[in-house]
């Protein structure tokens, strides 16, 4: 009997702490992982609930959700994926909303490499250009669209290296292995200022807008903490963080 006591105690402790504050597993598109960390801290401060953030490409996360991942909230990098999850009965109807509008930038870790008009795409002079996998990441798809519209896609295509998600894409550029790449503005801002390097903010008429939607997933239905997180995302404190990272709203 004595052997079992520690286990019983442990179980009791876990149950008690779960009753006080809930953990919300959140799937977050990689471009939003830095702002989400700040939002999660504010959320915990205000409500006591903890958001457990799993970053990844929108494609990968939705595939995990389709295969039974226990995420309660999904912050996608597009509007199409949450809508199709809802149509498939995996998300709660009527809970979708746009939490951020993404801004695509062409970025290089080298100062002066990317000019303010994106002429570098026509000039060339680089070996590798990093793009997030367009099949999985909306920022990747938007980047391909922009290059096609500028008429440079065919020339650049052999130089494209593909990151599995937007975070890996940024890492290819940050380590200098790719001279430049298309990333999210949020990834190259620190405290509202551009990090070292050079960038061109891609005009939004060159690609379809990157409306990033959040949705309550089926496992989060009726969970107060999950619903509280979605409410918090619509609130002023979260919106201030979203704007500070260069997103539109």
């Amino acid at each position: 009997m004595k052997l079992f006591e520690p286990w019983a105690l442990l179980g009791l402790t876990l149950t008690l702490s779960a009753a006080r504050a809930d953990d919300v597993p959140v799937a977050v598109a990689a471009n939003f992982s830095a702002p989400m960390k700040e939002i999660a801290a504010l959320f915990e401060q205000e409500t006591g609930h903890r958001a457990l953030v799993s970053p990844g490409s929108t494609g990968k996360l939705s595939e995990q959700i389709r295969n039974g991942a226990p995420f309660q909230v999904f912050l996608s990098a597009d509007e199409r994926t949450p809508a199709s999850l809802e149509a498939e009965g995996l998300a709660v109807p009527g809970t979708r909303f746009t939490y951020a509008i993404g801004q695509l930038v062409l970025w290089s870790a080298r100062p002066g490499f990317v000019d303010g008009k994106g002429e570098v795409l026509k000039k060339g002079g680089f070996r590798h250009l990093a793009v997030a996998n367009p099949k999985l990441a909306p920022y990747g798809a938007a980047a391909m669209e922009a290059m096609a519209k500028l008429g440079v896609l065919a020339a650049i295509e052999p130089k494209i290296v593909t990151g599995e998600n937007i975070a890996q894409t940024q890492q290819f550029v940050a380590t200098g292995n790719a001279e430049l790449g298309f990333v999210a503005l949020s990834q190259v801002l620190r405290d509202g200022k551009p990090v070292e390097g050079s960038m061109w903010v891609v005009p939004s008429d060159l690609h379809s807008s990157i409306r990033q939607d959040a949705v309550l997933l089926a496992p989060g239905k009726g969970k107060p903490a999950a619903e509280a997180l979605l409410r918090f995302l619509r609130g002023d404190r979260a919106r201030a963080v979203v704007r500070a990272f260069g997103y539109g709203l």
């Binding site: 590798h128 494209i160 290296v161 593909t162 890996q168």
Partner: peptide, 8 residues
């Protein structure tokens, strides 16, 4: 390969 290949 995933980390340093760039999926080309």
């Amino acid at each position: 390969v995933l980390m340093m290949g760039g999926n080309i």
